[in-house]
Design a protein around this nucleic acid. Sequence first.
RNA 1: GGCACCAUAGCCAAGCGGUAAGGCAGAGGUCUGCAAAACCUUUAUUCCCCGGUUCGAUUCCGGGUGGUGCCUCCA
Length: 465
Amino acid sequence: MQIYNTMTRRKEELVPLTPGVIRMYVCGPTVYNFFHIGNARPFVVFDTLRRYLEYKGFNVVFAQNFTDIDDKLIRRAGEEGITVPEVAERYIQEYYTDADALGVERSSVNPRATEHIGEIVALVQTLIDKGHAYAADNGDVYFSVRSYPAYGKLSGQSIEDLESGARIDPTEHKRDPLDFALWKGAKPGEPSWETPWGRGRPGWHIECSAMSMNILGETFDIHAGGQDLVFPHHENEIAQSEAATGKPFARYWMHNGYININNEKMSKSLGNFMLVRDIAKEFDLEAVRFFLLSAQYRNPVNFSRELVEQADAALLRIRNARERLDEALAKPAPSSTAEDEAFIASVAEFRGRWEEAMEDDLNTADAIGVLFDFTRAANGFISEPRGEASLRAADALLRDVCSVMGILRHKKEEAFPKEALDLLEERKAARAAKNWARADEIREALKAMGFAVEDGKEGAKLKRL
RNA sequence: GGCACCAUAGCCAAGCGGUAAGGCAGAGGUCUGCAAAACCUUUAUUCCCCGGUUCGAUUCCGGGUGGUGCCUCCA
């Protein structure tokens, strides 16, 4: 599989450190609020990568953290009059509510910063011991950027360029404006932990280094996140981690593009964000997931209600195909013919094309194109009775594709209210009597109740609208 | 100022050296009592502009134009 590596700015063959195992780390949410659609993109995209790798037979160790101690949580706790752990716990649960609805599989591990304080402190101590970090007089500990000559290798910037562009940091505790905090000295009323250099709490960047290396090893395969994390977050992680261990940190760096609103980056600071929680009031989040996968993950995508509606309409095609196939599968099958053989061969081709798209740096847009091509072929093929083997081949492909893409996860709701079923019966009688006026009237009534009627060869069906 | 990214139909979006996938929306048709779903046909003489390389460029190179992002918390 080819993966675009931000470090080398090229697509590279993904070769895991340990054959058959992929160790990956995705930067997770800071849990002080509900997450927005922009935050959702990496969750969905890298979940899809994980699912694909598992489909290919890899054992994927997938870690996504929760940042549960930082300025924003402290502020939030103050605003709500509750403790920082209470804020964290609440929004971790809210994260799961939205992530589950988006079809994001649970991580193998969900480390929380506060549960790894020991490793974080040890890592900071190592950096101090090796001369890469220093404790300032206010209890902060800073990483000395100039002590790590390779600094800037991920973002493609030299220390000098960064220096000239850096805004003046008001803090006087740093020796160099580029230095960043590994540890923040305790302030009154804030959560803090005891360390050899005084009480305090971890800085943001060091958490991810400590947790990822602790769980996945000092060198692991994939480190992923949004493009806005390239600098400084991931650059800093590399500096800290490699300075401490002397070994390469992550081997492949993957970064997803932004979600935009009117071609402008959606972000909490700009205030133009849309909460996944709010979108869920209007749309099935499966449509949102499908929308997110309808573009290649590195490209920016605009978000709008209209586009989710388009995605929803497109998804309906796949749902309908799924239903038609289920119905075909439920019928007695005639014995296979040469046409079945040919169809089975074409299914194998579709599978090949789909995998090829997925393996080209997770080109889900292209992969979806293959899915639709397959859908049309299958819909046409099953318009008449077909052998079991060919139906099963189609079923297996559709299942695999949907499973990797995380769509069509819901079971069909077959429980219709008695009132609706009675109306359907009455309509059947009316149609038998060729009383079309009454039949149409009932169809309208059912529509008003939220059900569509579809007349097929084997009678009428109800569908939820 | 430094470092990147993007520009393909009404709306999305692949393709990235061999003559424009797919979806939504629209139009026509088959099926249907009428619909719906499904299927078929149709919708870009052309990929922001100008040069260059090439037998051949949407695809590579150079230069423009327009838009975006990172360099500060941010997915």
